[in-house]
């Protein structure tokens, strides 16, 4: 055991960290990441700290300031009940983002499981599962979601489940392809010869080696989920209208637009665009460092 105490220092430092830092640097210097990452950071900080800094509550009506135009006291104006739009947007960031993130995680787990079974199983099973996936993919996501939402009460959990169920297919396809590609590798044969179970094969060999492209799909997936959530809420099919999600704010603003309350539509809309654009830019940056062919072109 003596030999162990010194081992860490003896592998040269540049060897241990060289590759990871190089990748990180490429990622951080990527023009798209340079725009997207600060954007994401601003949104994240605003979502967490924002509600504490704004002097109004999201559900605090002020009948003296109904439909107030943006001013120093209400930066982004107020709605038909005099509630501060900035406070509602920041509160809505928490709702919209957590719905999107949890739904995407749900979709990722589901997609990975499906991909593992199809990618590691016998060829006939793979064919059936992929055919089924193609069939699902031919149905427009929005239609699927609207039909699902038409049944039963609207609740946050239900929205999460519906978005998750509508968006796992891309992950499944990716995971299946990655599995098929990696299963041909010698180290997978070696693991099989070593007596690895299917579970171990999936967790210690396939998943880490497929993690990079998976990360890209997950990132972009969060952006998509934000969009789906907003669309659903806008159509009154999303999270309960009492919660100030971005889609709800936008939908609510639409009905006041004719009355001249442009700020109630403009700011929620900008918020959604800014968020999805930031996420997609970061996703593009990730994609470029994950794919060596694209990296070479930078």
């Amino acid at each position: 055991m003596d030999a162990l105490s010194t081992d860490k220092g003896q592998v040269p430092e540049y060897f241990r960290y060289h590759q990871k830092t190089a990748l990180l640097r490429t990622f951080l210097r990527h023009p798209m990441t340079r725009v997207g990452l600060p954007g994401l950071l601003i949104i994240a900080i605003a979502a967490v700290l924002g509600p504490l800094l704004v002097p109004y509550g999201a559900d605090e009506p002020d009948l003296a300031a109904i439909f107030a135009v943006p001013s120093w006291s209400h930066w982004l104006g107020t709605d038909q009940l005099g509630r501060d739009l900035l406070a509602r947007l920041l509160e809505g960031a928490q709702v919209s983002l957590s719905v999107a993130i949890i739904a995407t995680l749900f979709a990722t787990v589901l997609g990975c499981l499906y991909g593992f079974v199809a990618g590691m199983g016998p060829v006939w099973l793979d064919r059936i599962m992929m055919q089924f996936l193609d069939t699902l993919l031919s149905i427009p996501v929005l239609l699927l979601v609207i039909v699902a939402q038409a049944f039963g009460e609207s609740s946050v959990l239900k929205v999460i489940a519906v978005i998750g169920l509508a968006s796992w297919m891309g992950t499944a396809r990716l995971m299946r392809t990655e599995c098929r590609r990696l299963m041909a590798a010698d180290y997978i044969s070696a693991a099989l010869v070593g007596g690895a179970s299917q579970f171990r094969l999936a967790i210690t060999h396939l998943l880490p080696n497929a993690a990079a492209p998976l990360l890209v799909v997950v990132t972009v997936g969060v952006g998509q989920a934000v969009l789906i959530e907003s669309t659903l809420s806008f159509l009154n099919l999303g999270v309960p209208s009492t919660l100030p999600s971005w889609g709800n704010l936008l939908g609510n603003g639409m009905s006041s637009l004719l009355g001249g309350a442009w700020w109630m539509v403009l700011f929620p809309g900008l918020m959604i665009v800014f968020t999805v654009a930031s996420i997609n830019l970061v996703g593009d940056g990730l994609r470029d460092i994950v794919d060596p062919k694209r990296r070479a072109g930078l």
Binding site: D186, Y187, S189, A191, A196, P208
Partner: peptide
């Protein structure tokens, strides 16, 4: 295996690789 460059999982540390069959 023939090719030592592909027979080891690039993301698995040496200690984990060595004991993996045993841990199974």
């Amino acid at each position: 295996f023939q090719n030592p460059y592909t027979a080891l999982n690039p993301l698995q540390r040496i200690d984990a690789a060595i004991v993996e069959p045993l841990v199974n």
